[in-house]
Design a protein around this nucleic acid. Structure first.
Lengths: 111, 111
DNA sequence: ATAAAGCACTACCATATGGTTGTGGATAAG
DNA sequence: CTTATCCACAACCATATGGTAGTGCTTTAT
């Protein structure tokens, strides 16, 4: 049952609010309330966004009294980095190859 | 009107079919038909998936006779890599700091 | 004990997306 | 010319998500 976690990870990253949350959490843990203030969104929406981050295992939530403290999971970000790095050689080589391809397309009839 | 392109980029990457397409296209351009075969999906769905990749500027489509040739845009992948790299220092330092945080949480009452 | 703060849960709505089916247009092959 | 191939477009459905509003539980403060 090794579901591809990249699905939920990338989906979680596709929202600017959640990426801003990650940016903020990269400076240290914060409570749900602490995450609500800077974003001018309802507390319910912040909780929803956090839920997606938790589901994607990007953030861990811990009960602390009446607060829920959110902590960023560094490994999650590293997963994204690793995925992109798989193609590093491709997009480094391709800045040369691309010219050839484009020229081929033009010669072949670019419509 | 500088819409954050990371939105559509990450959204496009949140689907395994599209990531598999990227994997395939990283070995060279392919036609829509060429992309349909390995995935056991209808031609219409493949076209839809490609449309999302094109919208996210990850793939470029070029008419060539009755075929549409899809080419991967290396810069798009680099964008993802750059985003993750922003937090590289964080997730490298954090493998030490995390212990401290966890211990603080435990002392503070992990519930 | 009472009030306020921090948060979760539910219902509800609009939109985007994954997916199918059907169709039609353009190009290539016979 | 006729047919098959490659592809796009539209209608349609189910589900996930962004967002709001309302409610209630638990913990802290007074």
């Amino acid at each position: 049952m090794v579901v591809d976690k990249l699905d939920t990870t990338f989906a979680a990253l596709s929202d600017p609010t959640r990426r801003a949350m990650i940016e903020r959490l990269s400076h240290g843990p914060a409570s749900v309330h602490g995450l609500t203030e800077p974003f001018a969104l309802s507390q319910q929406m912040i909780s929803k966004h956090i839920a997606y981050l938790v589901r994607a295992r990007i953030v861990i939530k811990t009960k602390r009294g009446r607060e829920s403290v959110c902590t960023l999971r560094p490994e999650a970000i590293k997963t994204v980095s690793d995925w992109a790095t798989r193609y590093r050689r491709f997009w480094e080589e391709s800045f040369d190859k691309l010219d050839v391809v484009v020229n081929q397309m033009k010669k072949g009839g670019q419509r």
